[in-house]
């Protein structure tokens, strides 16, 4: 098991081609119903959370994203 690291959430840009990545995410949702969008997003969040692997970063992102 990966150790619970304690990094902090990146605030500065970390993407070489930010517009391409942004539009790839948005376009992936284009033809999906609301229901499928939510299922898609849930899978995406789980995949990325595991890839990040840093509980502190994930928790910070959860706080920042909370409306």
């Amino acid at each position: 098991m990966t150790e619970a690291a304690s990094g902090t959430l990146r605030r500065a840009l970390n993407l070489a081609r930010p517009d391409d990545v942004y539009n790839a995410i948005v376009d992936s949702h284009k033809d999906l119903s609301d229901e499928l969008c939510r299922a898609f997003d849930a899978k995406l969040i789980l995949l990325l959370a595991n890839h990040i692997g840093d509980e502190a970063v994930i928790r910070e992102a959860l706080r920042e994203a909370t409306p």
């Binding site: 939510r38 299922a39 849930a42 899978k43 969040i45 789980l46 995949l47 595991n50």
Partner: peptide
């Protein structure tokens, strides 16, 4: 509702992704 959506997403990923099986 969101709890079910994440549960079902986990199940859908489980076959191909070992991490999802752990969840």
């Amino acid at each position: 509702p969101a709890s079910r959506i994440f549960r079902d997403a986990t199940l859908a990923l489980a076959r191909d992704f070992p991490f999802a099986r752990a969840l």
